[in-house]
């Protein structure tokens, strides 16, 4: 049998997934552009659509304003995922 050594090494280096506690919800921060995605979120509100409270929306004047450091700071402060929309 031929084994792909490099693929095996990659697989070994991946962090083992932890067990997810019951009822756990990821903390998500959403960076949204004022002119499109934030307006869409606003519209969703008007339409009485709902989303989990663990999602926090941060309005940016434009997603072009999004900087590497914003994402890193978010992860440093413990968010589980970052959502950029624009």
């Amino acid at each position: 049998m031929v084994t792909d050594k490099s693929a095996t090494q990659v697989a070994e280096s991946v962090e083992a997934p932890r067990e997810t506690p019951v009822g756990w919800q990821p903390n998500i921060i959403a960076f949204a552009c004022h002119y499109c995605a934030f307006a869409a979120a606003d519209l969703a509100g008007v339409m009485r659509l709902s989303y989990p409270t663990s999602v926090k929306v941060v309005r940016l004047p434009c997603t072009g304003k999004l900087d590497h450091v914003y994402l890193l700071r978010a992860f440093e402060r413990g968010v589980d995922g970052v959502f950029a929309a624009g």
Binding site: D67, H68, V69, L72, R73, F75, E76
Partner: peptide, 16 residues
């Protein structure tokens, strides 16, 4: 200076 800020952030996360 921007790269310094990014690297500092990565080092803090590694330390944690």
């Amino acid at each position: 200076n921007k790269e310094a800020e990014i690297l500092a952030s990565l080092l803090r996360m590694r330390a944690v």
